[in-house]
Design a binder for these strands. Structure first.
Lengths: 137, 137
DNA sequence: CTCCTATTGTTATATTACATAATAATATAT
DNA sequence: ATATATTATTATGTAATATAACAATAGGAG
């Protein structure tokens, strides 16, 4: 009963990612937020007034899938939408949104710290650079 | 328009994983196989006679979700199921399955090589060990 | 051997993530 | 001024993954 793919980088990458995403989801659950919600809140805070389209490009979420995410966050009172022109909106955090975004960032910090702590020290500094090389382009 | 999470290891991990999984899916599409199909074929070849349950434990797929995967691969003529006892089956590759498994392994090899090639040399050797530290437990 | 418990494969079902196509309104460029 | 592109949106489909329930059966305890 051996794992024939255990040393394949792509396989290890997806297993590690799946496991860490699961962990993060557990940690966000008490806030009643999903990962996409959390990233959107943080990105809006860092980019006040951003449009759904531009936001979607940053976080790799298609416009069509953005709609329900944004409208749910609006209904929860975390973000506001103000018309920029006839077709696009400026997204901003409300006060309530800023508050929960603080909680989110705390959870993210904890999550990232625990994640990095699992990686043996000699590999740690190589981790993010290697991932960014795969991801960005 | 900046990505506030770009340097978060968990975020980078999931972005990198998503991108590479997408690539792999494209490469497997010509064989009309999905990633789960490919991993199952390779794992059965490495573990002849394994049961669906044991296989599911290796690849982190729940029994319930294994059913349709296995039965589809059987219908495609790639694997065979032989009763071990009254409730479990031994899974094996058919000749056709062994053939396509060869193609799969070729694609995986190519995929993994291209993936590693994207990672700057100085980080390469640290990549899989770091991921395994996150994933395994 | 018999009874209780655990395991296996299975069905049904729900959720989440993510993809495409079409559309109406509007901005932008020629 | 008109053609084209972009934005937000709706509708829809698929893949991955999770849980609960169930029948058949294996394995262990007495």
């Amino acid at each position: 009963m051996k794992d024939a793919l255990a040393n394949f980088p792509g396989y290890a990458l997806s297993r590690a990612s799946a496991k860490m995403l699961g962990r993060l989801a557990e940690r966000l659950a008490p806030l009643n937020l999903r990962r996409a919600d959390a990233t959107i809140l943080v990105q809006i805070e860092a980019n006040p007034g951003i449009t759904p389209s531009a936001l979607g490009q940053i976080v790799a979420i298609k416009r069509a899938n953005m709609v329900s995410l944004v409208s749910r966050l609006e209904k929860s009172g975390y973000i506001s939408r103000n018309a920029l022109d006839g077709r696009s909106f400026a997204l901003n955090l409300t006060e309530k949104g800023t508050n929960i975004c603080g909680d989110v960032k705390e959870i993210l910090k904890l999550h990232e710290d625990r994640l990095m702590a699992r990686i043996p020290e000699e590999h740690r500094d190589h981790f993010v650079p290697a991932l960014k090389a795969l991801w960005s382009e």
